[in-house]
Nucleic acid binder design. Structure first.
Lengths: 354, 354
DNA sequence: TTTTAGCACTCTAATTAAGAGAGTGCTAAA
DNA sequence: TTTAGCACTCTCTTAATTAGAGTGCTAAAA
């Protein structure tokens, strides 16, 4: 099948833009007067007929204007949308906000969710950065009261896990510190499997602590994705097509399940890829609950170090241009922050010794 | 003004219950046949007229059934609702779930939000437990790469703050550990003000670290309330009176602001208190956005140790009985967990020394 | 004095009918 | 290839009608 003519592409773009703005079907007349096109409405109608036949537009009913189909949006995003950058002013403002909360990783994700929600006017979801490879970097035991001890486990990548444990007998802080030091040296750089393999070499109190460390690693593993921050859920409800529909409720349920991003990325091959940013339009036939929605998502972070995901859920008629550029910008910004701030390879950490 | 007769109270209860169930105005006929009352609809009508005059019921329009007013709900919650307990089975199930994630504080709050949302069929908000008095318990410095060091600050109460800092020059892990140990001894049990008072006595690297600790304390202070977990937002949208109304969107916006619980508790004197559980009905004339909603909330934790808040947002016609008993039960459960697991007074922590 | 049957009255929500408006596809001319 | 003209289609709005639920009042019964 031959490609669309330039004029057809142009009209498709106009319909997508206008529908994004008004959420109402677009008629030929409307389009001509709105954009002062130097062709007649009949010509536009003919082109629209072609676009409809090709499956890029559809009519809600015989005598209504046109609305983009899922395929129409895909064509638009994949071939008509030119790469845009976030305005410089916006970039600077956002970067400044992040600069101010540079020290606190958990703030990033919250801030990213907030910025994303505001810029895209959709619901945003951001997962905290975390290492895929869960290795022990450091552990610490802190006496609290009697036999209760706080176990702090720092993973490669800087993630900190904490847990209260109950010893068989009371142990002084000095002894705990020495024990933690010994175990840190022994376990540093090891992942769950390696530690499990040498579990037999420990006895008594040490064995207990190592077991707890293993449990903590397992739990960190299964928690897969870590903290999830959401923002702008109310934005979705503000869209006219969702006010008072079941769709919005189901979408929010989906977001609340917290597994959505992971599932989507697992199937990411299916989505359209716009320079590292994935666009999932209308659930791509796989996620039935997402049918009236689109999602724009991207991973961020440094591979092998720590990675996370950020995404936006919005109506299918979302402003893809702005949303994609925001997601791309934030993804880059967060990647930089991860690279700057996160812990790097363990062997090199002792480069200055004594 | 003399009090309501028993029969009037009874009818008010029935109206509240029935309206909670159906969300439609309740007529006298309806009520008689529904509950096989041994009085005529005319009698019920007369009593309803009294209740309406007293301000406990109202009619959406002249020829409609009755609906409880805010005052009606207040009377119901305050004087008619008898204290109920969550069924034993439910209590056991919930306690078991918490038992399984006993070790991880951040899991509690998430789990509490989930349980609360399911049981109350509303939107739940839970803040993580935290100490009001921010005192240093322990600090740790972990070398990562070059001059980058991970500063871990454990507060009294067990809360852990982490932060990446950049030293002026590279320092070995041994030196960092010694430094952390020195500073832990010096700062242990002190709050922000005390540390700030003796800031002058530190110099060089130590002064830097102490400054970072102070910054971290300040930040922990301003974050007031710590992490906020939400669940069941979609439940609110499922209620018939909110499907397709602005109200639901505004309520969700309110929840997303994350300051709601704090504001509500600050005014808690205004709300009705049902055995430690606060019930805020229809915004109590203060929170305009909450007008069509009610909230049931409670604090939990051990005073002076660590406290948090949990609450439910639902329609004004929510099932107060079940919601209140769930909130009360969870509040108790979380309090127990905090008391069991959290760190206690610092001076006693060295009871077994060497 | 309290309760209840009877009844006229009121207001909403659902149903139907009519018409305006927007937009289309087709035909034939430019 | 484009465009003016036109009949046609379908939805959305408005108005009118009706069915139904529920009320308040009155007068009789308990």
């Amino acid at each position: 099948m031959e490609d669309l003519t330039e004029r057809q592409k142009f009209i498709l773009s106009l319909v997508v833009h206008e529908f994004t703005r008004t959420a109402a079907p677009i008629g030929s007349q409307n389009l001509v007067s709105q954009f002062h096109l130097d062709m007649s409405s009949a010509t536009v109608r003919n082109e629209m007929a072609v676009l409809t036949e090709r499956g890029y537009l559809r009519q809600p009913h015989t005598s209504a204007g046109r609305v983009p189909t899922e395929e129409g949006y895909r064509y638009f995003v994949g071939r008509l949308l030119r790469e845009t950058q976030l305005p410089d002013a916006a970039r600077r403002t956002i970067a400044h906000q992040f600069y101010q909360s540079r020290q606190d990783v958990s703030q990033w994700t919250r801030l990213a969710a907030s910025v994303l929600a505001v810029q895209s006017r959709g619901a945003s979801v951001v997962t905290a950065p975390r290492t895929e490879q869960l290795q022990v970097r450091h552990l610490e035991l802190i006496a609290t009261r009697g036999r209760q001890v706080l176990l702090i486990l720092v993973l490669a990548g800087g993630e900190v896990q904490q847990r209260m444990v109950l010893l068989d007998e009371a142990v002084s802080q000095e002894q705990l510190s020495a024990l933690a030091d010994r175990l840190t040296r022994a376990l540093q750089g090891l992942d769950e499997a390696s530690i499990r393999a040498q579990l037999g070499q420990w006895t008594g109190l040490e064995a207990s602590v190592v077991t707890w460390v293993l449990e903590e690693l397992t739990q960190a593993e299964t928690m897969a994705g870590g903290e999830v921050y959401m923002d702008g859920v109310a934005n979705v409800l503000a869209e006219p097509e969702f006010s008072g529909s079941e769709d919005a409720r189901r979408a929010i349920e989906l977001l609340e399940r917290r597994t959505l991003l992971r599932e989507l990325l697992a199937h990411s091959a299916l989505a359209h890829d716009a320079g590292g940013v994935q666009v999932v339009i209308g659930g791509e036939g796989i996620w039935e609950e997402l049918r009236p929605f689109s999602m724009v998502l991207a991973s961020y972070g440094a591979p092998g170090l720590a990675t996370g995901t950020l995404g936006v859920l919005g109506p299918m008629r979302m402003a893809y241009g702005r949303t994609i550029s925001t997601v791309r910008f934030l993804s880059g910004l967060l990647s930089d922050l991860v690279a700057e701030t996160m812990v790097e390879e363990i062997p090199g950490s002792e480069e200055v010794n004594g």
